[in-house]
Write a protein that binds this DNA or RNA. Structure first.
Length: 423
RNA sequence: GGAGAGAUGGCAGAGUGGUCGAAUGCGGUGGUCUUGAAAACCAUUGUACGGCAACGUACCGGGGGUUCGAAUCCCUCUCUCUCCGCCA
């Protein structure tokens, strides 16, 4: 969520920049400023009242001690009276504070200047592309055919055990998963990321910290009995490691990576684009996360994109990098780069990574701060990216590398798979 | 699942109704001393909100209550630990 004091000081600019999201926030922002005004006025009144009764209480105590019962009792009556009004002010303050916070939840992050204007994914800006699109034989197959032909993934079996979107990886298909995970983790480690294996379920506070709650609870599987949520991405548990913390400036950059399965309900997305590996309820992903000094987050973002590009390069997949337009930008992100690979049999681009800088939007909720040179505390910047999400990588690998007799495995994976072909 | 204990500042750990934002120790920071370091000594050291500032207010796991006054008493929730049972 946005910082109230930043919004207070820069309202017109913020409203202007938010227009990139194709919505006018003037009214909402004005309502917030109004609430903020009221809240501050109320706090002053409340603090005043509390201060007075604190003084009074102290005096009463002194009077009792020096044996002046009568006077003390008289003041006590006065104090009771005051209590009523301070109680009212307290309630009022809390109500205003609550309203203000809730109103702030509804304002998305402010897009950076580089974010192009636009309404939908068709307006995203392609800023880089690499790799050549393979020419497949006429009788080429989509990955869901290949996985069946070579016994790599059993979608029907997953449906039987759990439901649609929960595939069973078998034989070389399972081994390929493991290989990719290890490859991605090793690459991340080589780039200085510390590996963590976080919990796959998180509590409400964590889901709130990274912004899944209060709005997007429909996306997560919810174990109501224990009020825990299955993670939709490792971003949630990993970023929450630093919730409620004050870091030292020397701690930056904090670089962490982790492999986890991810669980997404994907409610309402049935029908289109869900065939095979394109959209699953459970999938594997290696995530990279960084906490960074605000002055350095921009270059950090670039290095993270570079890291992902490198992975795709090594895998030999044709890919492109998109800078998301304002209309496609996630609620919490200030800027996002999507990386897409070309899946040659399906003849379409598949999103395999999303690298974002959230500036202070997440850390404000997380209360992740650092003590600066000036001795004051400031909110850290958070960044994260997929490096990488497996299913669509597998889809593209299978489709792009197929030939008459099987599927070629990219060289960087050989030491992990132990085989160089699937046939 | 049953029985019990507990939750206090970065950590350890006092504090059972006013003198407590909170003793003490450790740690951190600054300084003295030293060729340098260590040791010793001195000082300083929580967060948030409001205020130009002085300063005020709130916070001792969360929420509620009693009281003129709560870290301290009551209720409730959450979490942690120990023992028993079950179990990978």
């Amino acid at each position: 969520m946005l910082e109230i004091n930043v919004l207070r000081d820069n309202a017109p600019q913020i409203i202007e920049r938010l227009k990139k999201r194709n919505k006018d926030f003037t009214q909402q922002v004005n309502a917030i400023l109004e609430l903020d005004e009221q809240r501050r006025a109320c706090q002053q009144e409340m603090d005043q009242a509390l201060s007075e009764s604190n003084v009074l209480s102290k005096q009463i105590g002194d009077l009792f001690k020096s044996g002046k019962q009568a006077e003390a009792n008289e003041m006590r009556a006065k104090s009771v009276e005051m209590k009523e009004s301070s109680h009212k002010l307290k309630d009022q303050f809390h109500e205003l504070d609550q309203k203000l916070t809730e109103a702030l939840y509804d304002i998305p992050n402010v897009p950076q200047d580089s974010v192009p204007a636009g309404k939908a994914d068709t307006d995203n800006e392609e800023i880089f592309a690499e790799g050549s699109i393979p020419e497949l034989a006429d009788n080429n197959k989509a990955h869901w055919e290949l996985t069946e032909q070579y016994g790599l993934i059993d979608f029907d079996l997953g449906s039987k055990i759990t439901g649609a979107g929960f595939p069973v990886y078998t034989g070389k298909g399972a081994k390929l998963q493991r290989a990719l995970i290890n490859f991605f983790l090793d690459e991340a480690e080589n780039a200085g990321y510390k590996e963590v294996i976080p919990p796959l379920m998180v509590n409400e506070d964590s889901a709130f910290g990274t912004g899944q709650l209060p709005d997007k609870e429909g996306q997560m599987y919810h174990a109501t009995e224990d009020n825990l949520f299955l993670i939709p991405t490792a971003e949630v548990p990993i970023t929450n490691i630093y919730r409620d913390m004050i870091l030292k400036e020397a701690d930056f950059p904090i670089k962490m990576c982790g492999y986890t399965p991810c669980f997404r309900r994907e409610a309402g997305s049935y029908g289109k684009d869900v065939r095979g590996l394109n959209r699953l309820h459970q999938f594997d992903k290696v995530e990279i996360v960084q906490f960074q000094h605000p002055d350095k987050s921009q270059e950090t973002l670039d290095t993270m994109v570079e890291h992902v590009k490198n992975l795709l390069r090594k895998l030999g997949l044709p890919y492109r990098v998109l800078r998301l337009c304002g209309g496609d930008l996630g609620f919490a992100a200030a800027v996002t780069y999507d990386l897409e690979v070309y899946s040659a049999a399906q003849e379409k681009w598949l999103e395999v990574s999303s690298v974002s800088c959230f500036e202070t939007f997440q850390s404000n909720r997380l209360k992740c701060r650092f003590k600066g040179e000036d001795g004051k505390t400031h909110l850290a910047h958070t960044l994260n990216g997929s490096a990488l999400a497996l299913p669509r990588i597998v889809a593209a690998l299978l489709e792009n590398n197929q030939d008459e007799n099987g599927i070629r495995i990219p060289e960087c994976l050989h030491r992990y798979t132990g085989f160089d072909r699937i046939d």
